[in-house]
Design a protein around this nucleic acid. Sequence first.
DNA 1: AACTCGGGGCA
DNA 2: TGCCCAGAGTT
Length: 213
Amino acid sequence: MLDSKETQYALQEMGKMFPNATTSLIADSDYHFLLAVILSAQTTDKAVNKVTPLLFERYKYPIDMANADPKEVAEYIKTIGLYKNKAKYLVECSKMLVENFNSVVPKTHKELMSLSGVGRKTADVVLAERFGVPAFAVDTHVHRISKRLAIVPEDATVRETEKILMSKVPKEDWIKSHHRMIFWGRYQCMARAPKCETCPLLEICQEGQKRIK
DNA sequence: AACTCGGGGCA
DNA sequence: TGCCCAGAGTT
């Protein structure tokens, strides 16, 4: 198992390959950022940024979408995946913001989680990216990378992985590390065909050693 | 715990 | 062209 020092070394190496690893979601307000993160589930920031300009122009505040027909909202986002469900989430989420939070995006994990379409990962991303609240968002990339590098046990749950990462990585590096692992998972250590042959972390990687044989 | 939504990304 | 996926909700 990688200790804290080795884990930070690995993250540092990821940073060398992806020095500009960060979110590219575009939003001009907390509300719009929340919607963008909800939309980003199971797709790319790029795909989301393609539909949000018109969507945000049409629905500026929660009240503007709270009583909208999900079918109308769906028209704005139908070029991204899972669009029918997401349209429903956005409308319901906006309605809940108006009714339960005075149209202000809440800043606690529990309150965010209570919103439609907002799960553990989305709540963590909003807290970390938008509100500067320390959180380590564990998505499938982060989870997979953590397991492959043996930062966490092979059978660790998402919740356990989050806890271990928070203990092994300094709090001020949580957001940065999240981004690096996302990029690492997308361009270097992909789910199906990781590039072990050219990987600078091969020597300390549990999964890499297994695969290279 | 398994299933569903779905266009995008990549082989 | 085919296959899986930068999740969350439902059953």
